[in-house]
Simulated scan of single mutants.
Amino acid sequence: MNLFHIYSLDGKQVFQKPKIEGMFEAQAICSPKWLQFPTPTGNSIPKPRIGLPTGISNPNVLICQTPIHFPPHKNIKSQTPFAVNASSASEYIEEPATKEKFQTSLSLPGCSSSLTLLGTGYREKVFAIIGVKVYAAGLYVNQSVLYSLNAWKGRSAAEIQEDSSLFNSIFLSPLEKSLQIVLVRDVDGKTFWDALNDAISPRIKSPTPVDESALSTFRSIFQGQPLKKGTFIFLTWPDPSKMLVSISSDGLPSGVDAEIKSENVAFALFDVFFGDTPVSFSLKASVVKGLESILK
């Protein structure tokens, strides 16, 4: 029987659990499990709280659906399959295909509060029948966004995947959402923009002058800029009417590089990743699993 292990923060094994074969197919999808979705009572709206799986008494241990092993790192406990201290400021999960690490919560420029990671995935391009991974990505949301999703409580991952209205509701919420992109290879800025524009343009059937101006601003950020491996790109939606772009080659960004003021462009980009034909199926599938877990 294959086993995976749960470890506490001091590196000691807590217990073993059978790994069920066939649960995951081509890719391991890690979905956050530490959020509970409490039901509002009366006029009060409770805040999301830290939840522990039934049968685990150690408050330092949280569990992921699939075993993830991190290499030694000063901010990551060795051999921790998403076993983290809920009060720690340096919590990470690893995107399985690229091995890129994403913080479980972030504070970003232009956001009123910290954002929580819902899922991760990667983007792959095919060159001469060979698939090449270009970047890893993770979706973060303001936790209060989850309170607008009561209608989907109890839905299965398959139902969430097929229902585009759920992701439309997330986008339309007047609370922050952010997509973190981490490049896993060097990319020319023009090449990156051209690929992005090829996905955005068909989603805006009749662009207005406002849309054209927003696309021009968006294009200017990447034109002529070499994007090195390890570069962070954050696309943040503080509300449905605009999008903030932050680029950093040295860790998390300290400011906003551009503000895109067009709801059509902002929604088109969100739809590129979370619409019916996403450019990263692994990212949307991971976010769907995260939502299924939270909305139980």
Rank of each mutant, 00 (worst) to 15 (best):
T191N: 10
V245T: 10
I129C: 07
K228G: 14
V134E: 14
L196T: 10
I160D: 04
C111F: 03
L227A: 05
P174F: 05
W193Q: 09
L235D: 09
S165N: 07
E124I: 03
G154W: 02
P240F: 03
E162P: 04
P238M: 06
L215I: 13
P240N: 04
G131V: 11
D163T: 15
D239A: 15
L149N: 03
S164V: 15
V187T: 11
D239I: 05
N168T: 13
F127I: 15
D186M: 07
K205G: 08
I181S: 05
S107F: 10
F234W: 15
D198R: 15
K125P: 00
V182W: 02
T191W: 02
Q180W: 02
D188R: 06
K242T: 11
D211K: 05
P240H: 02
V182Y: 01
P240I: 01
S206M: 06
I204V: 15
Q180E: 13
G230W: 00
S144N: 09
G224L: 04
N150V: 01
S165L: 13
L196M: 12
D188A: 06
S112P: 02
G119I: 06
S201I: 11
L115W: 00
Y122H: 11
D163F: 05
L106K: 02
E124D: 12
L179H: 01
Q223W: 10
L106S: 08
S114D: 08
A128N: 08
T236M: 10
N150P: 00
F171V: 00
S220R: 11
E162V: 07
L179E: 01
S114I: 11
K205D: 05
S178M: 10
V132W: 10
E159P: 11
N168V: 04
A214T: 01
W152H: 13
A128T: 10
F218S: 08
D211P: 09
F234M: 11
G189D: 08
V182M: 04
V187H: 01
E212P: 00
L196R: 04
I160Y: 13
K153H: 05
S169K: 04
A214P: 03
L149Y: 00
I181E: 03
I221K: 14
N142A: 12
S178W: 02
S249F: 05
A128H: 11
A158T: 12
P209C: 05
Y147C: 01
S105C: 14
I221F: 00
L118R: 02
S246P: 06
M243E: 07
F218M: 14
V145I: 13
N150Y: 04
F232K: 13
F167K: 06
V134A: 15
Q161V: 05
K205S: 15
